[in-house]
Amino acid sequence: MRVPAPAAPRLASVTSETLIRNGLAARLAVLLAALGLWQGLSASGLLTPDLFPSMTSTLAALWHELTGAVLWAAVRDTLAAWAAGLLIGGGCAIVIGSLLGLSAFAYRSAIPVIEFFKTIPVIAILPIALLLFGATLKMKFVLVAFGVFWPLAIQVIYGVRSIDPVSLDTAAVLQVRGLRRFLVVVLPSAAPFIATGLRVSAAVALILDVVAELIGGGSGVGLQILTAENSGPTAYPIMYSYILVAGLLGVVLAGGFALAERRVLHWHESQRSQA
């Protein structure tokens, strides 16, 4: 006798697969339509090359850059400050945020200061960073770390403060204390909050990084955009191809974070159904 039972899950996975494929196809179609529209606007003369190069010339410039060394060096410089700033700023936010979150007294004392610093537009400290470090990688790094720290610290504090008291009682009963308690109980409890904070911070970090290059002149994708712009309309295809690169970096990094979050938080209610 043939047992039809296994057909159901297979059917489900097939439909989800076709859904994903259809979704991809739809996205690709929209992308192609947008590119076609761009080219059409250029051909019809609505977009003039001194303001907005055609799609084909931009993609040609992008291809040319992709095969050269300048683009990859710029991407490396941008990512270096992004990663270092996120790592150091994020690391400090997690440690300091946890310490503040675990003590009601420290929390009450520190939260007004943190809320204040969070509201400062980080770009406002760009002149200070420039003054201190010049147009260097260090300047970009400091700006990114500063910009990442405050919002993430707040997220960590709230995450730590929202720990279920039963989790802490359990830790006390099992004699889990000190660093082990922090790593095994506190951090995983707060992880959903921290992950959201990190995802947002990573995006903010990239923006700050590119702005620090664009305005502050630190080397990287942002500086390439600025240089191309200053070279006049003939370099506009290059400028636009670097803008595209900055966008693609954002998409790739956001995707990476979403993927990492799904893996690390696989145990969390919000992820379980997908496991």
């Binding site: 989790s167 009682d169 009963v173 004699q175 992880a191 145990w267």
Partner: peptide, 19 residues
């Protein structure tokens, strides 16, 4: 909490660490 005490809480979904 003394070393020689074990506790079972009412709500196992909260006292067992899901991670």
């Amino acid at each position: 909490v003394p070393d020689q005490v074990g506790v079972v809480f009412q709500d196992y979904s909260r006292s067992l660490y899901p991670w």
